[in-house]
Design a protein around this nucleic acid. Structure first.
Lengths: 212, 212
DNA sequence: GGGATTTCGTGAACAGCGTTCAAAAATCCT
DNA sequence: AGGATTTTTGAACGCTGTTCACGAAATCCC
């Protein structure tokens, strides 16, 4: 009567995201969701197949938001007339760091969720959302005057993303809170600086080199 | 009578590791451990405070094994008279990839475990094990003729580690199985190549640069 | 409009989980 | 030997995700 089906679904997702963000995966409970949404436990399973389904849906929203944050950061730089590759890459990394800090529970929960099972089923939707980010990075790299063929640029974009991701997630696993931010920033700056210099001075990259 | 306390503890850990490796975190159940170890559920809690305690202990073993694998890879190269930085870094990365592949369930479980809660308690022991790895990488970097002060070298070592870690963990989250290995190898080769070139051509690194 | 039919929300019930703890078994000590 | 002490045990507790018969409500159809 008051809310139609879809609206309640959105409400459930909003509640679920708060729960995840506050207490991590363990805090996402069917009964809590039902209580806070003013529906019964059964109804939760009426809207979503599983709790996993709820979590997946929350994760989709997070990935969309992350992509939007990256795109917004680029749009902002464009508007300010900044095309420098280093600045753009740093802005992207910074956007990611801010995103992670803004989602202290739900983002780790997304990462943990993906690691729970060897992903038997469709990671397709996830990948699609992530490709959006790779596209942005690849676009920035295309703006530099490195001579990279499409394939190498694609690899480089994914490598940069994975590296920043590794730095951020490793960085937040331990250490005192204040040291973290500094260390992460330093690592990101080093990575970006080294990466750009490496690409500039890099001739042809071997696609299947001698691996020792 | 047959086994003393410590031996049973080891047995429990071995069982727990197999369970984790086969089915991830969800597969680590007190009753399963008890049954397979031939003891009662209560006894598991007699040996370890929690199931989390069991998992932590398994994780410690994994980190030790990882450190040993890295050290062994370096020892092997030394014995073969190989001092080339690129080859050493690739060998380290390769050792990590092989380690992850050899622990398809328990290693993701370790990562997921660390992400479950914002690590309220002591990550000290974890960090100590990881520092062992950073030392190895820093040692390799010191072997190159980049002029890096100690601080920058330390950051660079951690950055390299985090990047490889990010590449490997991102790489195994999706995609077809065969493409993964190739893509990961390519990303690692690009990372190492670019990193070395970047460090070679890098003058002084700004410790707190203008972040845009 | 009103009976038939389909749809949907409900919450008690079930199986399984981590964890506890009184009692039993084993061990130790004199 | 036998009391004191330690260790092991597994039934029991509270919580979890998930199901499903049931009844209410909406929808349909004539």
């Amino acid at each position: 009567m008051a809310l139609d089906r879809e609206e309640i679904g959105e409400r459930v997702l909003a509640i679920a995201e708060v729960l995840l963000n506050e207490g991590g995966m363990d805090n996402l409970k069917a009964r809590t969701i039902a209580e806070q949404a003013g529906i019964s436990v059964g109804s939760v399973y009426n809207l979503f197949s599983d709790l996993d389904g709820v979590h997946r849906a929350v994760n989709m929203r997070l990935l969309e938001r992350l992509g939007a944050a990256g795109a917004a950061a680029m749009a902002d730089l464009s508007q300010r007339g900044i095309t420098d590759v280093r600045q753009r890459l740093l802005a992207l990394a910074s956007a990611y760091v801010r995103f992670v800090e803004a989602h202290p529970g739900s983002w780790p929960a997304l990462l943990a969720f993906n690691r729970r099972r060897p992903t038997l089923t469709e990671p397709d939707a996830y990948e699609a959302r992530l490709d959006q980010l790779f596209e942005i990075i690849a676009g920035v790299l295309a703006g530099g005057d490195f001579d990279l063929d499409d394939h190498t640029r694609r690899i480089a974009a994914r490598t940069l993303w994975s590296s920043v991701h590794g730095i951020v997630t490793s960085g937040y696993a331990g250490r005192s809170v204040r040291r973290q931010a500094d260390e992460i920033d330093q690592q990101i700056e080093l990575l970006v600086a080294v990466f750009i210099r490496g690409l500039e001075h890099g001739g042809a990259f071997a696609h299947a080199g001698t691996t020792a």
